[in-house]
């Protein structure tokens, strides 16, 4: 426990936070990496996942990608890419995108697939085109799972971005490895606490976004339509989406490895 107090002491000093190598700068850098990697992953994986969900073709790809991403060791991928690209940001970015994209893909695919087939058929019967069904029915209704995929990806990226410093990039991992190399446990622990806090904050931000989105009529799934909301049995059956939805990609993955 004294270690934690020492780390907190260090965290409360001004010099730990100030300057270009301070915790503020590193936290921003860490967040920047996270946003960049999440953005790239989303640009690559969202359209692909939506297409797979919409057409129901290429499910094998989604299944293999998510299964492989779970088994791939982050550090191995990171160091391997780093040996080819050299020290810097490229290796972590490539590794982060490879790791995060499958979660986004699985979320998008599971989200679209989760939409009740009767609803899709009804939309088609109304004369909606395939594109309209995707953008006006499948994406809005599948949004909780699509967001869960992004949330999971963001968490994976924050965790892995800590390792970016191992191959010479910045981020909060810098302080962590600095502490490790100099046997300064309080610096190591302090930096770790900041990473943990950052991860929990980002996770909470996603949770709040998901909760807020559910207030928008027509968004976020059939549970808005079916039955009174306060009915406990109903709530149990649907689960609390912001709590249960992060699991959806996992469950998806659980089935995944089955093949």
């Amino acid at each position: 426990m004294t270690n934690i107090l020492e780390a907190l002491d260090w965290l409360l000093t001004a010099e730990a936070w100030a300057g270009p190598g301070g915790l503020w700068a590193r936290s921003l850098e860490h967040l920047g990496y996270t946003l960049l990697a999440l953005g790239i992953s989303a640009v690559i994986a969202l359209p692909l996942g939506l297409a797979i969900g919409h057409t129901r073709k290429g499910r094998g790809l989604a299944i293999v990608a998510t299964g492989a991403a779970r088994a791939l060791p982050t550090l191995g991928l990171l160091t391997l890419v780093a040996l080819f690209t050299g020290i810097g940001l490229t290796a972590p970015m490539v590794a982060l995108v490879i790791l995060a994209a499958p979660s986004v893909l699985a979320g998008a695919y599971a989200g679209v697939e989760s939409v009740n087939q009767a609803t899709v058929d009804a939309a088609r019967a109304q004369g909606m085109s395939g594109w309209q069904i995707l953008t006006r029915v499948e994406i809005p209704l599948g949004l909780p799972l699509i967001l869960s995929g992004l949330r999971l990806a963001a968490l994976q990226i924050i965790a892995t971005a800590t390792l970016a410093a191992y191959v010479g990039a910045g981020g909060l991992g810098r302080q962590l490895f600095l502490g490790l190399q100099t046997y300064d446990y309080s610096v190591m622990l302090g930096a770790s606490l900041v990473v943990i806090l950052l991860a929990i904050l980002v996770d909470a931000a996603f949770g709040v976004t998901q909760r807020l989105l559910r207030q928008v009529p027509g968004l976020a799934g059939p549970q808005r339509v079916s039955g009174p909301r306060r009915d406990p049995r109903n709530r149990r059956a649907n689960g609390r989406p912001e709590a249960s939805s992060p699991e959806a990609p996992h469950q998806n993955r659980a089935n995944v490895t089955a093949h």
Partner: peptide, 16 residues
């Protein structure tokens, strides 16, 4: 929430 905790920081936090 525990799952949100990144692995490397947890490896370092646990000893404390």
């Amino acid at each position: 929430l525990l799952y949100a905790v990144p692995s490397l920081p947890l490896f370092i936090l646990l000893p404390a």
